[in-house]
Computed example of a mutant assay.
Amino acid sequence: MSTFSLPKWIKPHLFLNKRFIDLTEAEIDTLKERLGALRNDNPEVTVAIPAWNEENNIYRTLSSLADSKTKYKVELIVINNNSSDATQQVLDKLGVRSYFQQIQGTPYARQMGLDKAMGKFYLCADADTFYPPQWIDLMVDPMTKTAEVTGVYGRYSFLPPRGEGRLGLWFYELLTGIIIRVRQNRREHLNVYGFNMGFVTEIGLSTGGFNVSSSRVYAGVIGNDTTNDAEDGRMARNLKTKGRLHLVTDPGARVFTSPRRLLDDGSIWNAFLKRTKRQLMILPEYLMGKKVVH
């Protein structure tokens, strides 16, 4: 993969200039057939996706997962978190196993997915993210090889906004990679995000699940990179009470996600400046483990 371009594996799943309603019946039937490999009734791995109003994103994510090259038996489930668009119709048409969670918020959706999971290992995905073919195996393998590893998390890149390149995003990701390494020792839970993480299902359930004291909605993730008391960060801390987390660094496990988390700051450049300043202010906490008072 070129540093400043998208990898080849992602391109068939972009469906450029197409909404789900624009797909032909042949395209839908082909995608449904490909997803059949992720419908095991006795799975080793559960891949769970929360979805809120994602009718024109989630089929792209599903297409990428349908190309998974895995040695494990996998079940794919989607938690429809009270969508008001055609998300459910998309899932039904593609034959995806889904559950409806009326209570709004990612903790409730992720917890329902965990409660419904049948796999020994649980992988979290998101409806606006693309997953490479080896992602499942590269995420699960560390947990099968070492009992001490109770959870895993991976690296990520951002899709460029339409008509833009990846140069600015590359600089942002370079900074993120450095910060991830710095935080591993004392603030590792800040590295863990729900669109690219996994854990041993039983341990995730027994240590508290995704339950948190306050609920985050899908648009409310700004600033999450320095506090992360949301459900993914809480899960990471819970998992560490029973073992350790493992950072999956293999390039084959790097996912590509929507830039809308960054664009909430107005632009990629604004996001870079704002988050760089925020990270520099809290750097002593990462290094010394002491809470910094601003």
Rank of each mutant, 00 (worst) to 15 (best):
P7H: 03
F121L: 10
S157C: 07
V152W: 09
F195W: 14
V200T: 09
R166M: 14
R234C: 08
M288L: 15
E44A: 02
N42L: 03
R254S: 06
D92I: 08
K274P: 00
L65N: 02
S68V: 09
A117R: 07
K93A: 12
I28F: 03
I21T: 15
K116Y: 02
T227F: 11
G163E: 12
K240Y: 04
V90C: 06
G220H: 15
G204F: 03
T24R: 03
D115T: 08
T227W: 11
Y193D: 00
R60N: 05
D29Q: 13
T61R: 05
T276K: 10
I21P: 00
K32F: 00
W170R: 10
F121M: 09
V90K: 09
V182I: 15
V74F: 06
P284Y: 13
L262S: 11
K274E: 13
K11H: 12
G165T: 08
T144C: 10
F20M: 10
G289C: 09
P259V: 10
T144K: 12
L247C: 11
A48F: 01
I21Q: 15
S213G: 07
V182C: 12
K274D: 13
V74Q: 08
H13L: 11
G208H: 02
A86R: 15
R97D: 01
N82R: 01
Q89C: 04
V192C: 09
N185P: 00
K277E: 07
K18N: 03
R275K: 15
L38R: 05
R244C: 02
T46N: 07
T87F: 09
T227L: 13
A219G: 15
G209N: 10
S63G: 10
N56M: 05
I222Y: 05
G165L: 02
V47E: 10
V292P: 00
Q89R: 15
G220R: 14
Q88H: 05
F199E: 01
E148M: 10
L38C: 06
L273S: 10
G223Y: 06
G151F: 08
I77A: 04
N56P: 00
M288W: 04
S63P: 08
R216D: 11
D115H: 08
I136P: 03
Q279C: 07
G95I: 13
S84N: 07
Y156L: 05
H246I: 02
I103C: 00
K120N: 12
G233K: 05
A26I: 03
D67K: 05
T30W: 00
V45P: 12
W52T: 01
Y156H: 12
S98H: 13
S63N: 10
P251V: 11
A271V: 08
V255A: 01
E148T: 14
N270V: 06
L262N: 11
I77M: 09
G223V: 02
C124G: 01
T176N: 10
S258T: 15
L91S: 02
P132G: 01
L16R: 12
G233R: 03
W269A: 15
V255I: 15
F256L: 11
Y59H: 14
P160G: 03
G151L: 00
V255E: 05
